[in-house]
Computed example of a mutant assay.
Amino acid sequence: MKNRIKELRQEQHKTLREVAEAVDTYNQNISNWERGKSEPKLATWQKLADYFGVSFDYLVGWED
């Protein structure tokens, strides 16, 4: 399963810093999540989905 954080970030022309600030975390965390090295907590997944304007299921790759 591949999450869509990087895809959405690039489509929306957002920097790592912008996304990190929006969900109250560090740039490195966003980078690690994009590369699958770690995963955000459930509440952060939801913040990311809200930020990008997509469903949780879409963000985590469960639906198209």
Rank of each mutant, 00 (worst) to 15 (best):
R4D: 06
K37F: 14
W33L: 01
P40Y: 00
V54W: 00
Q28M: 10
A20W: 03
Q12K: 12
D57Q: 12
S31H: 10
I30C: 08
D50R: 08
V19W: 06
S55Q: 12
L8F: 10
R35G: 06
L59Y: 11
W33R: 01
E63V: 15
A49R: 11
Q12W: 09
G36A: 01
S31F: 08
K6V: 07
E7M: 04
Y26M: 07
S55I: 12
R17Y: 14
Q46N: 15
N32F: 13
E11P: 08
S38N: 13
R17C: 05
W33Q: 01
Q12F: 13
W33C: 00
Q10R: 10
M1K: 04
F56L: 14
R35T: 11
R35E: 10
D24V: 09
D24A: 13
E7H: 07
Y58I: 07
S31W: 11
N32M: 13
D24P: 05
F52S: 02
K2G: 01
S38Q: 02
T44Y: 05
S31C: 06
Q28H: 04
E39Y: 09
L42G: 08
E21Y: 05
A20V: 01
A49Q: 10
K14N: 05
R17K: 14
M1Q: 02
P40Q: 01
K14A: 04
E39F: 08
G61Q: 13
V54K: 08
T15P: 11
N27G: 06
F52T: 02
E21G: 11
A20Q: 05
E21D: 15
Y26Q: 12
R35P: 03
V19N: 00
N27Y: 08
S55A: 07
K37Y: 15
W45Y: 02
A43S: 15
T44C: 14
K6A: 14
G61F: 15
H13K: 15
V19M: 05
L16G: 06
N27M: 12
Q28L: 06
I5W: 02
G36P: 12
S31D: 06
Y26F: 09
N3M: 08
I5N: 00
S38E: 07
R17M: 09
A43V: 06
S55E: 10
E63S: 11
W45F: 03
D57R: 06
V23L: 01
A49N: 11
R4T: 07
E39N: 15
Q28F: 09
K6W: 00
R17G: 00
E63G: 11
Q12L: 13
Q46Y: 02
Y58G: 11
R9K: 05
E39M: 05
Q12C: 10
K41Q: 09
F56D: 10
Q28N: 11
A49V: 09
V19S: 00
Q10M: 14
E11L: 09
K6D: 13
Y58T: 02
F56M: 13
Y26H: 15
G53L: 03
L42Y: 05
L48T: 02
Y26W: 14
N32Y: 15
K47E: 10
G53Y: 02
W45H: 02
D64P: 06
V23C: 09
K41L: 10
N29C: 05
K14E: 03
K41Y: 03
F52L: 07
W62L: 15
D24F: 11
S38M: 04
E63T: 15
L48A: 00
K47A: 04
W45N: 02
N32L: 12
V23S: 01
S55Y: 06
K6M: 13
E34A: 07
Q46L: 14
D24C: 12
K2R: 12
L42I: 13
E18R: 09
